[in-house]
Design a protein around this nucleic acid. Structure first.
Ligand SMILES: NC(=O)c1ccc[n+]([C@@H]2O[C@H](COP(=O)([O-])OP(=O)(O)OC[C@H]3O[C@@H](n4cnc5c(N)ncnc54)[C@H](O)[C@@H]3O)[C@@H](O)[C@H]2O)c1
Ligand SMILES: NC(=O)c1ccc[n+]([C@@H]2O[C@H](COP(=O)([O-])OP(=O)(O)OC[C@H]3O[C@@H](n4cnc5c(N)ncnc54)[C@H](O)[C@@H]3O)[C@@H](O)[C@H]2O)c1
Lengths: 241, 241
DNA sequence: CGTCGTTTGTGAACGGATGCACAAAGTCGC
DNA sequence: GCGACTTTGTGCATCCGTTCACAAACGACG
């Protein structure tokens, strides 16, 4: 399962039915996985793929895959499958990846540097517009192809490059303040790495990546397994009612 | 993830009341958030908290919080709230954080180094048992308090330190092989950063952290917002050629 | 041109998660 | 000791996502 069900978070008003994008959140979260699988197939020279194979490659059930894709339109051919290139295009378009999104990263510490150094974003529709830090000792330093700019330039960068997505890689203590500045500057999508719950106005989308939480979820299951192996203690359950 | 979900609830008879680890997955995923909020409260000297406040701090609805906590037992006091320290203990115990889990990180690149440098894991119940890499140029190098060991030592480290959790921070091309080795060595919980779907046997738990996917999900919503702002029905899919 | 085999797209049943609303259970002041 | 007030724990209705299963749609082939 599932780290990635859907992130319950920023403003999701029930009355927000204005333009129903029509694609369920759970589906949106899986489209990038399909896209990755499709790229892998295309690179191997595969031109057509059936839902079964694609589903296997993406690690999901084929009925789910078909239902997911059906939300984008009817792009399959019965009796044959899906045209890989065409589906790549359609999924990309649905996700809004026909353009390259500029992203600003705030915080050039361990994590911010790793992100800035990562080459994989460019090929997936993202471009690092700036890497910002408030520490003067870091400003001007080269990280990969980027130079660290001072955090004061946040508003200028967002405005001049029309940045819609920001990543927060600062310590938790400064994260809310950074978030507020991003929002004030016009950023409406935020990827948060700091271990706290950000508060944002309606209309701003926050997703969090919290590695400690992921480990703790793993720990829960690990504990459950090892307790089960020991057996009796909390064990068999079921049986009587 | 995928296959690992099948395991949990094989026998879930209505009316079983014994204390099985029967905590819903969605609840497990939120417990770490509650725990973090509780620690923050404790640090501020708060000794007692009502579900409303804690829920706000954790960014959830209070009914959900109470229902989540009710799965651990009945640890609240009606008319008062929850004792912060006691709840910290109970949530920690439920998550299996009364012990410190050794974690092995495979891949000492950008991401692996950031993880190894991160000080926040220790306080949350985890200890980096080893940082491994196959690149001889990296072996022996100091990262924070750790020294990079050669990937060949994976099995030895897992065995000697009884490692149950592994993090994969290698390129996608080597990730499945590394995963197989971890599983063979006895690791049953894996945190995967490489952008591919790992295949694991039943009984092994995989969680993925995929930053590109997170960004792509944000891009989807950002696109949706900006399309809505432009106004009318710039109907993305629809038109049936 | 019709039949056959294949695969899509989806209706419908199911199950889990969410949130409301309230009775039960407890505290606190007097 | 008692009544008023607070807050928990949960039954219930609802919603969302998953999965099954199958008819409709399509290509291939004779
Ligand atoms: N490194 C990891 O593996 C890891 C793991 C889990 C969580 N996190 C979280 O990610 C965040 C970043 O982690 P890190 O290891 O990179 O921390 P870090 O301390 O190495 O880097 C933080 C950087 O943010 C900068 N900064 C602080 N306040 C700022 C502000 N107001 N504006 C701009 N820059 C500011 C600091 O100068 C520093 O360079 C933290 O919240 C951390 O808890 C990191
Ligand atoms: N850095 C990021 O911000 C970022 C973002 C998204 C995804 N990722 C993913 O995380 C993974 C790691 O990213 P990175 O930037 O650290 O990559 P990297 O190339 O900097 O580091 C990978 C490291 O893994 C080592 N390695 C390769 N094969 C190995 C093996 N079989 N055993 C042990 N070590 C091996 C390499 O020597 C290298 O040091 C990649 O899969 C990447 O796609 C990284």
């Amino acid at each position: 399962m599932s780290s990635t069900l859907a992130q319950p978070d920023a403003g999701d008003q029930p009355g927000d039915r204005s333009w129903d994008g029509g694609i369920p959140e759970a589906t949106v979260a899986r489209l990038p996985v399909y896209l990755r699988a499709l790229y892998a197939l295309a690179e191997r020279g595969v031109t057509t793929v059936a839902s079964d194979e694609l589903a296997t490659a993406a690690g999901v059930n084929s009925a789910k895959l078909r239902k997911d894709l059906s939300h984008l339109g009817s792009y399959g051919i019965r009796g044959v499958g899906y045209d890989v290139d065409y589906l790549v295009y359609q999924v990309s378009r649905a996700l809004g990846l026909t353009q390259s999104w500029p992203v600003v990263i705030v915080g050039a510490g361990n994590l911010g540097r790793a992100l800035a150094n990562y080459g994989g974003f460019a090929s997936r529709g993202f471009r690092i517009a700036a890497l910002l830090d408030s520490d003067p000792a870091l400003v001007g330093r080269k990280i990969g192809r980027l130079v660290v700019s001072h955090a004061d330039e946040l508003e200028a960068v967002v405005a001049s490059q029309n940045v819609a997505i920001g990543a927060i890689a600062t310590p938790a203590a400064s994260a809310q303040a950074v978030c507020d500045r991003l929002v004030a500057a016009g950023v409406t999508s935020i990827l948060n790495f700091a271990p706290l719950v950000l508060t944002v106005p309606d209309g701003v989308d926050v997703r969090k990546v919290d590695l400690s939480i992921e480990l703790q979820i793993l720990a829960f299951h690990a504990q459950r397994r090892s307790a089960a192996r020991v057996g009796q203690l909390a064990g068999p359950a079921v049986a009587e009612a």
